[in-house]
Amino acid sequence: MDLVAAIGLQLAYVIANLALISLGLAIIFGMMRVINLAHGEFLMLGGYTVVVATNAGVNIWVAMLIVAPLVVGIIGVIVERLLIRWLYGRMVDTLLATWGLSLLLVGLVTSIFGASTATTVAPPLGAIRIGSYSASGYELFLILITLVLLVLVWLTLRFTKLGLLARGTMQNAQMASSLGVSTSRIYMITFGLGAAVSGLAGALLAPMTGVLPTIGATYIAKAFITVISGGSAILAGTATGSVLLGGLNGIFTFIAGSTFGEIALLLAAILLLRLMPRGITGRFFRKSL
């Protein structure tokens, strides 16, 4: 029984981790049809913000939950104004420009902080015990906060004025703008919010992984697979994508080691795209958010 609970927790953590790193990307992709290749670098910037803020004496919880999303969100807005808004409707060019941005940010952070790891922050929660097994309290916290984050995004989209305008713009940008919605402002806010969520995710993961200028590359592949397998619905897509792929990854990791876990994840994603080219939510749950 304890073993089942421990494995279940581990599985839940893999899934939550996947959902956490993909959510920011899913928001930007689902709302704006912009594939942000600098997504990994937004996560990286979140991590660096936490390290810099805690070194400056800020409480780690404040640094993770408030400062990091704020800083990365502002960076996101600046990026949208300077770069992305010239390229709406040109998906390939956006892809290339954000890739350039990703290299630029890696280069910038390397020049400022150096190529090796900056001072890391320790996970602020100790271990908890499940019978004869022990699990990390911080992993449990990450699972909970991922759930909270998903619910928050759902509430924002479903019940606020901003969410309504954003959904309208997503469905038909021309119609929305003829009804007096400033779509350009909505895009700016959406991109900023997506960046802020990415920054928060990067900040939350920083104590687990440490921070490096190139750490974005380790996130980005998994985030893309999850979002594309999930399809264009932001929440349902992220949730189904991470449950399916994270679950497979977790199970195969348990059976045959982490290398096979990654292989299983990739093969599952490629097979899934052959069967459902528009992702899970392109076939099922079409009306969902």
């Binding site: 420009a97 290299l103 390397t110």
Partner: peptide, 15 residues
């Protein structure tokens, strides 16, 4: 930094 220069080149060419 190499990354910095290449990133800038890519952005400039795309735009």
């Amino acid at each position: 930094n190499n990354n910095l220069v290449l990133g800038a080149i890519l952005i400039v060419f795309v735009l």
